[in-house]
Measured scan of single mutants.
Amino acid sequence: MQGVVKVNSALNMRSGPGSNYGVIGTLRNNDKVEIIKEVDGWYEIRFNGKVGYASKSYITIVN
């Protein structure tokens, strides 16, 4: 499943599904990501070869 990031500035990509996990990357508005699965309001995603987590509130699913 594919998604597009929708933010005003930047979205942190984290090592786990929560804001208490470390930041491993930064996503920008309109970045395209691969959604692997949903975990407690977060998406596990793949972006630029990295796998991490981002809040699903800021990612819109596209077909």
Rank of each mutant, 00 (worst) to 15 (best):
W42K: 01
N12I: 11
K37V: 09
N48T: 09
K56W: 04
E34A: 04
K37Q: 14
S57M: 12
N8K: 10
P17S: 03
S9N: 12
Y58I: 04
M13K: 00
N29H: 12
K6Q: 15
I35Q: 01
F47Q: 05
K32P: 13
N12Y: 13
V7P: 04
L11C: 06
L27G: 01
Y21P: 01
K32V: 15
E34T: 05
G41A: 11
V4Q: 08
I35E: 00
M1Y: 12
N48D: 12
N20D: 15
V51G: 07
A54K: 00
M1F: 12
F47M: 07
K50R: 10
I59P: 00
R28M: 15
N20M: 12
I45A: 02
S15L: 11
K37G: 09
V5Y: 00
S9D: 14
K50Q: 15
V4C: 05
S19T: 10
T60Q: 13
A54S: 06
I61S: 05
E38K: 04
R14Q: 07
T26D: 06
I35H: 01
D40Q: 09
Y43M: 06
Y21E: 04
N12H: 15
D40W: 06
A10C: 06
E34G: 04
N30F: 09
G16V: 01
Y58M: 12
E44P: 00
V39H: 07
Y21M: 04
N12K: 11
I36Y: 07
G52T: 02
G18R: 02
S55M: 13
T60Y: 12
N63T: 15
I24K: 04
E38G: 05
G25E: 11
Q2S: 12
N63Q: 14
V33W: 02
F47H: 14
V4G: 02
N63V: 13
D40Y: 08
S15T: 10
K56L: 07
E44D: 03
N48F: 13
S19C: 07
T60R: 12
V33K: 00
I36A: 05
V4A: 07
T26V: 13
G52R: 01
L11W: 02
A10G: 13
F47I: 12
G41D: 12
G3W: 03
G22Q: 14
G22E: 15
Y53L: 01
N8S: 11
V7N: 08
W42R: 01
R14P: 01
G25N: 08
Q2D: 13
N29A: 08
K50T: 10
M13H: 02
Y21T: 04
G25L: 11
V7Y: 05
N29F: 10
R14H: 14
I59D: 01
G16K: 03
Y58N: 13
L11G: 05
I24A: 06
R28F: 15
I45L: 10
K6W: 04
V4K: 07
M13V: 08
N20K: 10
R14F: 14
V4E: 09
I35S: 01
